[in-house]
Design a protein around this nucleic acid. Structure first.
Lengths: 111, 111
DNA sequence: TGTAAATATGATTATATATTCATATATTCA
DNA sequence: TGAATATATGAATATATAATCATATTTACA
C-alpha cells in the first residue's frame, strides 16, 4: 500500500468517528466564513491591518456592526489587534483559516 | 516581481472587490459546512455512497432530518444520487468543497 | 391494482444570528 | 479634569435555520 492510500484510510477513520469537540471546532470555523460581512472583513484584512473605522468606511458598514463581527472573529482567534492610541488595528491571526477562505474565493471566481 | 508575488496581488485585487455573486457562492458554500449534521453526513459520504436510511441509522438521525439536509446539499450540488429501486444512494459531487472539509477536519484533529 | 418500503415534503416550532440603536468605556491631550 | 475620538457593549428586533411530526410521493412487486 502506498503512502497516499494510507493517508486516505487514516482520514476516513477520523472522519467517521468525529468526536463532539472536533465537530464543534470545524462547524464553528466554517460558520465564521459563512457570513458575507465577515467574508468581506477578512478579505480586506488580507491586504494588511486596518482600524475598525477604516473597515466600516471601506466596506460601507456601521461601526457597531463591524465591532460586533470583529469580536466574533476575535473569539475564534481568526483576527488579532494592536492598539495605537484610541485606534485599534485589526489583522489576520489564522493562516490556515485564511487559506480556506482564499481557496473558496478563487474557486468561486474561476467558475 | 516573481510569480508568487503576482499571484498574491491578483488575489488581493479580487478579494477587495468581491461582487455580490461571488460573495453569495462563497458564503453558501461555507454555510453548508457550518452545521454538525451536514459535516457528519458529508464525512460519511467520504467513504462511498450510502442510502438515506443507512445515513440516518449510522449517524443516529431521523430519516426526515437526513432527507432535508440531503436536499440542501443537493441544491448546492455538493452531493448527487443514483436510484436503485426505491433506494437512493447518495454520494459526493464536489471534490473542491470536500477538500475544504477534509483540510478543516485534519487541522482540527491535529491541534 | 393494492400493499409495502424508501424517500420527500410542508407546516410548525424552537433556537440562532445579524443588524440597529443607544449608550458605555477607554485613550489622548489641552 | 474635561472634551474629543475611537471602539465596545447590551438590548431589541427581524430573519434564518434545524429538527420534528404528519403525510405525500415514488417504486417494486405480488
Amino acid at each position: 500500500m502506498n503512502e497516499e492510500k494510507k493517508h486516505e484510510e487514516a482520514f476516513l477513520e477520523v472522519a467517521q468517528h468525529l468526536d463532539e469537540e472536533t465537530l464543534f471546532i470545524v462547524s464553528q470555523t466554517f460558520k465564521a466564513l459563512s457570513d458575507p460581512t465577515r467574508i468581506r472583513i477578512l478579505s480586506l484584512l488580507c491586504s494588511g491591518e486596518h482600524s475598525v473605522n477604516e473597515i466600516a468606511e471601506t466596506l460601507n458598514l456601521s461601526q457597531s456592526s463591524v465591532s460586533h463581527q470583529l469580536r466574533f472573529l476575535k473569539n475564534l482567534r481568526l483576527v488579532k489587534y494592536r492598539r495605537a492610541g484610541t485606534t485599534l488595528f485589526y489583522s489576520e491571526d489564522d493562516n490556515h483559516v485564511m487559506n480556506l477562505l482564499k481557496q473558496a474565493i478563487e474557486h468561486a471566481v474561476h467558475h
